[in-house]
Amino acid sequence: MAPLRALADLDDEERAAAESLLFRLADDEFVIAERYTEWQVVAPTLESDLALSNIAQDELGHARVWFDALGELGYSERDLVWERDPGAFRHSTLVELPFAEGDWADPILRGYLYDVAEDLRLDAVAGSDVRELVDPVEKIRSEEEYHLEHAQNWLERLCDDDAGRERVQSAADRLVPHALTLWVPGPAASAIDSSGLRGESLDATRRQWLDTVASFLESLGLTVPLDPGDDPTESLPDSVGSDGNHTDHWPRLHDELTETYRELGRSDVRRLRGEGT
């Protein structure tokens, strides 16, 4: 196998492609973590509270890994989070939607749809030849395995009875179209593939994702609102997120999470050593 290249050694076109790939990875992780933390203290049981908190912190940690890679391309945390225009965020709409109070089926199903996608995405990224993309994959995947198991166990449990299954079905009807936005190619898609930044195309990964998701959900007695053969673009929601067009929920969330930074008039971010990791 050829030795891995460093991000810093990519040519201009490759760098732009890598940036585009990294922004999507980082932003999805960052925003889903932000949403998951909404369940802290209000999850159904103390145990589920602890579990979802762990997952939120893992995802935030992964966001930081990808933000650090973007750091190699010259971005600071200030540019990446605190002073970035909400319209410049590249996450999918799946991760930015708010939760309805008490709708535990939503974070569980959303987590499942996201974790399966994450797994495939990491596979694809591990097939690249860029060190900053390949190196973090092993550790991230070891954590994602637990996330997936957590989501699957809960889905099985919730689908045990009719009332729970109806709640999960309603979450699926609402969320699956938004999950498809994870696979919408951006303008850099072909450059990402031709620069060898991922081992599989988005299209191929989407098909695998839908196969996996559909067969598991159907085994629980759920209906997935589209078939693998369907044209996915016909099922997409009005905004897909990764092109910068988000639902109205995103600017509000961004406004809330940057409030302290703005109110205190901060202009920089200090990294902590070892804390919270």
């Binding site: 960052f30 933390t37 912190q57 935030l60 940690g61 966001a63 930081r64 933000f67 945390e77 989070v81 605190w82 302290t260 930074y261 205190l264 901060r266 971010v269 200090r270 990294r271 902590l272 804390e275 919270g276 990791t277």
Partner: peptide
């Protein structure tokens, strides 16, 4: 107001 602080 920072990612690290949020984690902590």
């Amino acid at each position: 107001p920072s990612v690290d602080r949020k984690l902590a």
